[in-house]
Amino acid sequence: MANRRIGDRETADEIVQDVYARLLLSGDHGTDEENVKVLYASVRNAVIDHHRSTAGRTGLMRRILPIQLWQREASSPHDHAQSRQALSALDRALLELSPKAREMFVLHRVDGVSNAKLAQKYGISVSAVEKQLARTMRHCQQRLEAYRDTD
């Protein structure tokens, strides 16, 4: 069920494992049938939560880089200067991050490495990768606020 709704087997497996572990810690909920119902309901809710959090992070990531940093072909000298300033501000913002956060950001945004592969590389969960990328994006967005395209 989770795999079908999420479309990413690794993420779905992680969600199901997290839910199962939490349910094991919370104890028995009655009969086997009732336990299965609780498990399915919990997984369904976790999938919904995952979609909500992913949508928020995706929106955040879409708002920051392309428009702010790369100039259009027919840009004016003023636009070109603003793009260079924004790129410098991004460089400074990235230098304020830990080396791991900076590397994760570059691997994801520049090299296109998936969250699952980043999780495997750093030995953390996909959720932890998503949260780190979201923190990094918020940090960069705050630093780039002066250079946002308000058109």
Rank of each mutant, 00 (worst) to 15 (best):
H29I: 00
Q82W: 04
R9G: 01
V38Y: 00
M137N: 07
L95Q: 12
T11E: 15
I15R: 06
A41N: 10
E14N: 08
R138K: 14
R143K: 12
T136S: 10
Y122L: 08
H50Y: 15
V106E: 08
N115S: 08
A101I: 05
V129M: 10
L39H: 11
L107H: 06
S83L: 01
K37W: 03
R62T: 03
G59W: 01
H51Y: 09
R62F: 06
D151N: 13
A74L: 05
A89K: 02
K100Q: 13
G112K: 09
R9P: 02
Q85H: 13
R5S: 12
S53M: 13
T58M: 14
R52N: 15
T11Q: 12
D79A: 12
V19C: 06
E33G: 08
H78M: 07
D49S: 13
G7T: 12
E34D: 11
R22Y: 06
V110A: 11
H50G: 04
R72A: 08
I124P: 01
V43W: 00
A89Y: 03
R62E: 13
T150C: 07
E96T: 10
S125L: 04
L94I: 07
H80W: 04
L118M: 09
S83V: 06
T11F: 07
L60P: 01
Q68W: 00
H78F: 11
H108F: 10
